[in-house]
């Protein structure tokens, strides 16, 4: 059984953790504002807890879709993938330092 008291609320520590894994830096001002706003939002969204879904399957899509498979064939790509970047070297994208 999951502990439910942790749900539908957010504090600074949790927000900072989320912002880190989302690779999205937030200013102190944004953090303060967001905590209050996210609390309001979650309080309203909590309403779905009222629904008994114990026997319900999730709908990842609105209609039933089937997997579409095809042969993995090499095709020529006529568009230049590097056309929209400044960060390139020879035929490659150039990224920031990894380590």
């Amino acid at each position: 059984m999951v502990e439910t008291s942790k749900y539908w609320k957010i504090d600074k520590e949790l927000l900072e953790h989320v912002s880190k894994i989302a690779r999205l830096e937030l200013s102190d001002e944004e953090k303060e504002k967001f905590i209050k706003q996210l609390e309001d939002i979650l309080k309203t969204f909590k309403k779905i807890d009222e629904v008994d879904t114990s026997k319900v399957k999730p709908s990842f899509h609105a209609l039933e879709l089937k997997n579409v498979m095809r042969e993995d064939e090499v095709k020529t790509w006529k568009w230049n993938p590097l056309a929209n970047t400044k960060h390139k070297e020879k035929k490659y994208f150039k990224g920031p330092r990894i380590v």
Partner: peptide, 9 residues
């Protein structure tokens, strides 16, 4: 996941 189940309903 809960939201996806509500969507089914």
């Amino acid at each position: 996941l809960k939201a996806l189940k509500v969507r089914s309903l």
